Simulated assay, not measured.
Amino acid sequence: MSVRDCVLIGIEGTHAAGKTTLVHALTAHYRQRGVQVDCTGEPARTSPFIEEIVIHGKGTFDLATEVDLFAQQLSMTLRTARHNKLLICDKNVVNVLAYARMVLPAADASHDADVLDAMAHFCRAWAPTYDAVFYLPDRYPDPADPFRAKVTHLQDQTAEAVRRTHAEVGLPLVEVPGGLGTPERIDWIARRVDPLLAGQPAILRQRDRTADPPS
């Protein structure tokens, strides 16, 4: 199910997986082919809440921060999809839910827990909106990035949480082979996205898909 006939794909992975690099390169690839395409960035990069916490060291992750990220992820997706044939998203709302569960110590029956449950329920209903979500297993640490340096130690925990939450809400992840360079990643993904642009089902073999966290 697309957003107003715009094919919607997501790029997922843990911290420093090369998601943003791939999103922009993939967008350029389709623009060069004449496809009306755009991409969305990672909401945390422009969030004033995250800036206060990560850059200025003020406050902690709280419910307001996570709800703002959740809403911004949805709003950016809907607004950018309006006039495009293809939209490539850096993460998706399920990712926001996975992170929120990691950083919020929500006690049972608390207000925070109720809101997280509501977010999970929405994600289950919203999951069919995405035509495909691709997961990048690689990691490219960059300690010079202040956002990334703060969370690099959470790579394993994040990877497990992202995989588990996608499986829980019923949004399959399409596993991109590890060790590919950007051109090879583009080629691999494009061969699966092109049928969607032509109005055909994506060519996704069973071994491409993963819905479970690694053992």
Rank of each mutant, 00 (worst) to 15 (best):
R31Q: 15
D194P: 04
L86C: 03
K58W: 00
T80V: 14
A127D: 10
R185E: 00
A28Q: 00
R31N: 08
R209H: 04
P43T: 09
D5S: 12
Q32D: 14
G178A: 15
Q32A: 15
D38V: 02
L171P: 10
P183C: 04
P183W: 07
A106F: 04
A106C: 01
R205N: 12
V162Y: 15
A211N: 13
L116A: 10
F49D: 10
D5H: 02
E51Q: 11
G179F: 13
L22S: 00
A100R: 00
R31H: 06
Q200W: 00
V151Y: 14
A120W: 10
A211M: 13
P177Q: 09
E66T: 08
V93P: 03
T46L: 14
V115R: 04
V115D: 06
E42G: 07
V169M: 04
N84V: 03
V96R: 14
L63D: 12
P201A: 04
P137W: 14
D62R: 13
A98C: 06
F147K: 05
V133M: 10
W188E: 08
L136N: 00
I186P: 00
L63C: 14
H29R: 13
G41E: 10
A113G: 02
D131M: 05
M119I: 08
A132P: 00
D142Y: 07
L26S: 06
P137H: 09
K19F: 12
V151M: 12
L22H: 09
L136Q: 09
V93W: 08
L154D: 09
C89Q: 12
D114K: 14
L8D: 05
Q72L: 10
I203G: 02
P172A: 01
Q155Y: 11
C6G: 05
L97F: 12
P183R: 10
E52Q: 15
D117P: 05
A144N: 07
V94Y: 06
R124L: 03
D117W: 04
N84Q: 14
D68G: 03
P183H: 00
P48T: 11
P128C: 01
L97I: 14
V23S: 10
T60G: 05
V23A: 06
Q32V: 07
T182L: 08
I11D: 03
V54T: 15
D142A: 08
A64I: 09
H153V: 06
H24F: 10
F134G: 05
G34A: 03
K19L: 12
V193S: 12
K85Q: 15
L87M: 12
Y135S: 07
L196A: 09
V176A: 02
I53G: 05
A44G: 12
A113I: 01
V169Y: 06
P213E: 05
T129D: 06
N95F: 13
T77R: 07
C123T: 04
T165A: 08
I55H: 12
E12D: 09
R124K: 15
E42W: 00
G178C: 11
E42Q: 08
C123K: 08
I189E: 07
R209G: 02
R163N: 11
A64M: 12
P214S: 11
D212C: 05
D142G: 04
V193L: 07
R82N: 03
C39T: 01
V54Y: 05
H121D: 13
C39H: 07
V35G: 02
A100N: 04
L74Q: 14
Q200L: 09
T129I: 15
E52K: 13
L197R: 04
R207S: 15
L104C: 09
L78G: 01
R79W: 00
H24A: 14
E12L: 15
